[in-house]
Amino acid sequence: MTRPASSVFRRSGLTLDLWWIPRALILGLLAFVIFGPLTNLLLWTVAERWYFPHALPIDYGFSYWARVFAPRGNAMESLGNSLLVASLTVLVSLTLAIPAGYALARLQLPCRAVILIAFLIPQAFPNLPVYVNVARLFYQIGLNGTVPGVVLVHVTHGLVYAVWIATAAFAAIDRELEQAARSIGAGALRAFRDVTLPLAAPGLLASAIFVFLESLDEFTGSYFVGAPDVNMLPLLLYSAGAGGNYQIASISALLLLVPSIGFMLVVERFLKSDVLSKVGQ
């Protein structure tokens, strides 16, 4: 009969638990997978010279930061365009998602599940052939190489998050609260504005953040529809990485990473479990 490892290694009343070894190995591996690439990214942002076989940069400095933010650099213009496009994408997506989410959550619509699945269609097909044809169509109508054209492309992806989370947010609100407001004389619009909308605000805020992050990181649509007239951070990151300039690429990636981490913390704060449980229902 095999005895537990703790009993085998029991000496003088002390117990040696060997289960900490695989636990430590697993935690160490997870930490390496998560923080290893981030550490490498941070090192490249301050590396002046770094080449094989050196495990760490030879020289450190911030000269590449100065190049990125120089007046002739495209970083500030790209950052401004990315923030502008992401903000407009959020505005358009929520303008469409709030009435759509409310209708899907409150009304007995036929084929409701089909309507929700239809918003997943832009995610169901490869982006490359879709955006090539979108760019050809936008070129014919004068939207190629414009901010509105890029915003429209980003909205097609952002609506997935906006509509699904907005539907879940409205579905999580008790209908009796609206009915109580209606019973004391409030109209449908006022009950929605004063009761339903404030209660759904955390979920709508979370959907806005998801849309913002999706737009901020979108590359394929920005490249085929916006380049070269609309410079954006993902395009700057790609061109710097393709050219072997890993310092500038890492600095651009860090500029994209910081708002992503901040917004995800906001999502964790506002997106509650009762909203998540309603997603897709």
Rank of each mutant, 00 (worst) to 15 (best):
residue 192 F to T: 15
residue 3 R to N: 08
residue 226 G to Y: 09
residue 137 L to T: 08
residue 159 L to K: 09
residue 37 P to K: 11
residue 196 T to Y: 03
residue 69 F to I: 02
residue 86 A to H: 09
residue 42 L to P: 06
residue 63 S to K: 14
residue 274 D to T: 08
residue 60 Y to G: 00
residue 10 R to V: 00
residue 45 T to E: 01
residue 66 A to F: 11
residue 140 Q to N: 05
residue 84 L to H: 01
residue 44 W to I: 03
residue 254 L to C: 15
residue 242 A to C: 00
residue 9 F to Y: 06
residue 186 A to I: 01
residue 182 R to L: 14
residue 173 I to Q: 15
residue 135 A to Y: 08
residue 84 L to W: 03
residue 218 E to V: 02
residue 169 A to C: 12
residue 193 R to L: 13
residue 32 F to N: 06
residue 64 Y to H: 11
residue 19 W to P: 00
residue 252 S to L: 15
residue 182 R to H: 08
residue 123 Q to C: 07
residue 153 V to P: 02
residue 217 D to P: 00
residue 168 A to D: 10
residue 255 L to H: 03
residue 213 L to W: 05
residue 77 E to L: 14
residue 61 G to S: 08
residue 11 R to A: 07
residue 265 L to Q: 09
residue 42 L to Q: 07
residue 6 S to W: 05
residue 255 L to W: 06
residue 198 P to A: 12
residue 267 V to A: 13
residue 98 I to D: 06
residue 22 P to I: 04
residue 9 F to H: 03
residue 222 S to P: 09
residue 249 A to F: 12
residue 47 A to S: 14
residue 27 L to S: 06
residue 118 A to S: 15
residue 45 T to A: 03
residue 153 V to Q: 05
residue 108 Q to H: 14
residue 119 F to R: 04
residue 132 V to E: 04
residue 135 A to I: 04
residue 101 G to H: 07
residue 104 L to E: 11
residue 81 N to D: 02
residue 134 V to P: 02
residue 32 F to W: 10
residue 28 G to Y: 05
residue 208 A to V: 02
residue 281 Q to C: 10
residue 86 A to I: 04
residue 83 L to P: 04
residue 19 W to T: 05
residue 199 L to V: 01
residue 159 L to W: 13
residue 27 L to R: 04
residue 212 F to P: 00
residue 3 R to E: 12
residue 51 Y to P: 01
residue 119 F to I: 04
residue 169 A to V: 05
residue 102 Y to Q: 13
residue 202 P to C: 12
residue 240 A to L: 07
residue 147 V to P: 03
residue 267 V to L: 13
residue 260 S to D: 03
residue 27 L to P: 00
residue 141 I to Q: 04
residue 111 C to L: 11
residue 275 V to Y: 15
residue 182 R to S: 03
residue 86 A to R: 06
residue 1 M to H: 09
residue 279 V to C: 15
residue 246 Y to T: 13
residue 261 I to H: 00
residue 182 R to F: 05
residue 163 V to R: 05
residue 238 Y to A: 13
residue 61 G to F: 06
residue 186 A to M: 14
residue 254 L to P: 08
residue 73 G to N: 03
residue 12 S to W: 04
residue 247 Q to L: 12
residue 251 I to V: 15
